[in-house]
Design a protein around this nucleic acid. Structure first.
Length: 221
DNA sequence: GACCAGGCACATC
DNA sequence: GATGTGCATGGT
């Protein structure tokens, strides 16, 4: 018996409302990894511009990014914000990928999850969410991705405390919904879509598919 | 013009 | 270990 049957209920309602999200968008595992870094604290529309620039400049490969002069790379990723920081983070990731896996996302994906996740977290600029984006969507690993929307939606529905940590939230999902890769991908996509549409700093609960939510606590903030 | 967006590292206490 | 701060563009 699950402690949080509501997690399945939340998914089912969102899936009924939106249908398949097809998350994450991207033409290749490497493009997904790049997008995961560029979208840190940034609206996705800005990331799309940056990725389009990288493609136009023939920079969407580990070797090209790694070897590109700073000003060229920074100019390309500029629309995604924090462009100096993100250019360096992309370079850090590419250096790791080239060094450890010859620049091959497919080779990286063959590494077991338990070894790969700590490796990614060891790359400067890759934190828990970015690592899990890459693991789930680019490497096919069974890891639930937690983000600001995930935390906010659960908190506002009284299902978790405000200060619950990343790992605790991840475990909550991973122990209370079926261990299914497609479900993990879609559930996170649905949370992103719902968060953007209904659960920003100013909640718009009226038309939200999660309203009314049945469960333990009362809505907050 | 203010506020916000799917984080992260680093400094300081 | 908790808390604060810098990083920056583009949309609403």
């Amino acid at each position: 018996m699950s402690q949080f049957p509501s997690l399945q209920e939340i998914h089912d309602r969102l899936a009924a409302y939106y249908g398949p999200t097809g998350w994450w968008p991207g033409d290749s595992p490497f493009e997904i990894a790049v997008g995961a870094i560029l979208t840190q604290n940034t609206a996705w529309t800005n990331v799309e511009r940056a990725i389009a620039n990288l493609k136009a400049e023939q920079l969407l490969s580990p070797r090209a990014i790694h070897d590109s002069p700073s000003d060229i790379l920074e100019a390309a990723v500029r629309p995604s914000g924090y462009f100096r920081v993100k250019a360096q983070r992309l370079r850090n990731f590419c250096a790791y990928l080239l060094e450890k896996y010859g620049g091959s996302m497919e080779r990286m994906a063959r590494e077991p999850l338990d070894a790969l996740r700590p490796e990614l977290l060891g790359v400067n600029g890759i934190g828990p969410e970015t690592a899990d984006d890459i693991l789930l969507y680019a490497c096919g690993k069974l890891v639930f991705v937690v983000d600001a929307y995930t935390r906010r939606i659960l908190y506002r529905h009284g299902l978790t405390g405000k200060d619950i940590g990343y790992e605790a939230l991840r475990e909550l999902f991973e122990t209370n919904i079926p261990a299914d890769h497609y479900l993990y991908k879609e559930y996170h996509g649905l949370i992103v879509w719902t968060g953007k549409e209904f659960c920003g700093p100013k909640p718009k609960c009226e038309a939200c598919p999660l309203n009314p939510l049945l469960l333990p606590g009362q809505p907050r903030e």
